[in-house]
C-alpha cells in the first residue's frame, strides 16, 4: 500500500512539473533545458526556509516560487532575442549556472544552511521537514498523497483556466507566428516573461513538494540529465493542450520504471533499461508522432 502511495505522490509531483513545462514548451514554443534547475531551486528554498526560519510548507514553498520567478528573468531575457537552437543553448547556459551554484555554494566542515555553506554541496541537504499546515504535520504517506493530489488538481484547474483564457490564446498566437502577434499589438515580450515566470514558479513549487516528500535534496536534481528527462516527459506525453499531454507524459515517465521493476530486473539493469526506453521512445515519436502521444502541437 505504501508503495502505491509513494507512486501516487511522485505522479502528482510530475504532473505539476509537466504542466509547468507545457506552458513554456507547448504554449510559448521554446525548448528549455533549464527546467530541472528551477525545480531544484524550489526544493532548496523550501529546505532552507524550513531549516533556518522554521516556516511551514506554504510560506517556504512560496519563497522558492518567488526566487524561481525572479531567476526566470534570465530565461525570459534570452527568449526575447532567441528561438530554436539559440534558445536551447541559452537555456543550457542558465541550467549550468544554476547547477554549479547549487553544487558549489558550500564549504565542507561548516554547518549546512549557513551563508558560507548554504547548500551543503554534493552531500545534499538532509533532514528537510515534512509538509506542515497550521501546526499539523503531514507525516503519514496517505496524508501526503491526499495533500499532493490536491496540489496537482489545483495545478490542473489553474493551468486549464489560464491556457483557455485570452492570455493562453495569445501565447499560442505568439508560438505560431510571433510577427503577426506583434503586428496585432500584443506585447510579446511581456507575455513570454509572464509565461516563463509562471512555468518556472510551478516547477519550483513541484521542487518543494519533492524535497518535502523525500526529506532530502542534492544538486543531482538540478543536473542536465534531469532537465532532459523532464523535457522527454513532455515530448512523450505531448504538448499544446492544457492537461492531457502533461498527464500522459507524467504517467509514462512513472510507468516505464515500474514495469521494469515488476519484471524483477536487477536495479542497475533496470536503471539503464529505463533510460534506453526513454531514448527509444523519443526517437520513435519524432518519426511516428512528433506531437507526442496526446499532444496537439508539433514542437518546432
Amino acid at each position: 500500500m505504501s508503495y502505491a502511495l509513494h507512486i501516487l505522490i511522485l505522479f502528482d509531483i510530475y504532473v505539476v512539473v509537466a504542466l509547468s513545462l507545457n506552458i513554456i514548451v507547448g504554449y510559448v514554443g521554446l525548448l528549455t533545458l533549464a527546467h530541472a534547475g528551477y525545480f531544484a531551486i524550489g526544493g532548496y528554498a523550501y529546505a532552507l526556509a524550513g531549516y533556518i526560519m522554521g516556516w511551514e510548507f506554504v510560506p517556504s514553498a512560496l519563497v522558492g516560487v518567488a526566487i524561481a520567478m525572479i531567476l526566470s528573468l534570465a530565461l525570459s531575457l534570452g527568449s526575447w532575442r532567441f528561438r530554436g537552437d539559440f534558445f536551447v543553448l541559452f537555456s543550457l547556459a542558465v541550467q549550468v549556472v544554476i547547477y554549479t551554484t547549487l553544487r558549489y555554494w558550500s564549504k565542507p566542515g561548516k554547518p549546512h544552511g549557513t551563508w558560507i555553506n548554504l547548500t551543503n554541496g554534493d552531500f545534499g541537504f538532509p533532514g528537510i521537514a515534512k509538509p506542515t499546515f497550521f501546526g499539523t504535520r503531514f507525516a503519514d504517506l496517505a496524508e501526503v498523497a491526499v495533500l499532493y493530489s490536491l496540489f496537482a488538481l489545483i495545478a490542473v484547474v489553474f493551468s486549464r483556466l489560464l491556457l483557455h483564457s485570452p492570455w493562453g490564446r495569445m501565447l499560442q498566437a505568439i508560438r505560431d507566428d510571433e510577427l503577426v502577434a506583434r503586428g496585432l499589438g500584443k506585447d510579446v515580450r511581456l507575455a513570454k516573461m509572464q509565461a516563463i515566470g509562471l512555468g518556472c514558479a510551478m516547477a519550483a513549487f513541484a521542487g518543494a513538494m519533492y524535497a518535502a516528500h523525500l526529506a532530502f535534496i542534492d544538486p543531482a536534481s538540478a543536473e542536465l540529465n534531469e532537465s532532459i528527462l523532464l523535457l522527454s516527459m513532455i515530448i512523450v506525453g505531448g504538448v499544446g493542450n492544457s492537461v492531457r499531454g502533461p498527464f500522459v507524459g507524467a504517467f509514462v515517465l512513472l510507468l516505464i520504471p515500474e514495469v521494469l521493476r515488476w519484471i524483477e530486473l536487477p536495479n542497475a539493469l533496470a536503471a539503464e533499461l529505463r533510460l534506453i526506453t526513454y531514448g527509444l521512445v523519443l526517437v520513435l515519436l519524432m518519426h511516428l508522432r512528433p506531437q507526442g502521444i496526446a499532444g496537439t502541437y508539433r514542437v518546432s
Partner: peptide
C-alpha cells in the same frame, strides 16, 4: 521536412540509447 527541434530531440534520444546501452 521535420523541424530543428525534432532533429535535436531524436539526436538526444540516440545519444541516451547509445550511452546507456
Amino acid at each position: 521536412q521535420a523541424s530543428f527541434s525534432a532533429q535535436f530531440i531524436s539526436s538526444l534520444g540516440i545519444y541516451v540509447v547509445v550511452v546507456q546501452a
